[in-house]
């Protein structure tokens, strides 16, 4: 489990006057469960990109426990993400031509040899999320199943934090609920800090804390006064 602490973070894009994201001080304790909301363009994705190291941060500090990923070069950020952050994306980003099992173990396989305990854990996770035929080609699964496979993939390396970026936006109501359930349940079981970007009020309600972004700033924090 990782704690998150953000200080003086500012993200700017070329050609834009105002920063896309500006967070003066924000902290999420280890094991916290955070919902991030906001209108589109409010900086949600930029926040996800910053805290997962997908985008380079030029000013400010983002600490996961003691590691400031803002100070890491891109290769080290990639490695940190692989090791500590489980990422579930809106568009699943599974790889056709491979089976469900192969998709789950792909990040490990492409980085190093797949060890037997990891293979066993992948099989266990697939079983947990309700995929009965792990060898089935991924493109033949339903969308709900695909996102569940993506959740299993995110959890394979026992990440300290699970970041889900609009995980249910491309799913219908019922499937979306199932996937949200699964994410919340597994994050707890796997003892991972959880950050979910979502529009879904039902999902928000089930998380301990909620922040709302607007114009790149936190304008509402269920835990207290937003510090900007």
């Amino acid at each position: 489990m990782l704690s998150l602490s953000i200080r003086d973070l500012e993200m700017r894009f070329p050609g834009l006057e105002t920063p896309a994201l500006a967070i003066g001080n924000f902290a999420l304790p280890a094991g916290g469960r955070l919902a991030v909301t906001g209108a589109s363009g409010s900086g949600k994705s930029t926040l996800v990109n910053a805290i997962t190291g997908l985008e380079r941060v030029k000013s400010g500090a983002i600490r996961w426990d003691e590691t400031d990923i803002a100070g890491l070069p891109s290769g080290r950020r990639d490695a940190f993400r692989a090791r500590h952050i489980g990422l579930v994306m809106q568009d699943f980003h599974l790889f056709p031509g491979l089976s469900a099992f192969e998709n789950v173990v792909l990040p490990v396989r492409l980085a190093r040899r797949l060890a037997r305990p990891e293979a066993e854990r992948a099989a266990m996770l697939l079983d947990t999320i309700g995929i009965r035929r792990p060898q089935q080609a991924i493109e033949t699964l339903s969308r709900g199943e695909m996102q569940r496979v993506a959740v299993a993939r995110a959890l394979l390396s026992r990440p300290g934090v699970l970041v889900a970026d609009e995980p249910t936006a491309n799913l219908d109501r019922r499937t979306g609920d199932e996937v949200a359930d699964l994410i919340i349940r597994l994050a707890a079981e796997e003892k991972a800090t959880l950050i979910v970007v979502t529009h879904d009020p039902q999902v928000m309600e089930r998380l301990d804390r909620r922040i709302r972004l607007s114009g790149g700033r936190i304008d509402e924090d269920s835990a207290g006064t937003p510090q900007t």
Binding site: F80, R81, A82, L87, M89, H93, F95, L106, L110
Partner: peptide
């Protein structure tokens, strides 16, 4: 996008180059 996804999953650059 596919390559972006591979990197998002933390796959090392060298592996992506090799692929």
């Amino acid at each position: 996008r596919q390559i972006g996804a591979l990197r998002a999953l933390g796959i090392p650059k060298r592996s992506i180059v090799v692929i």
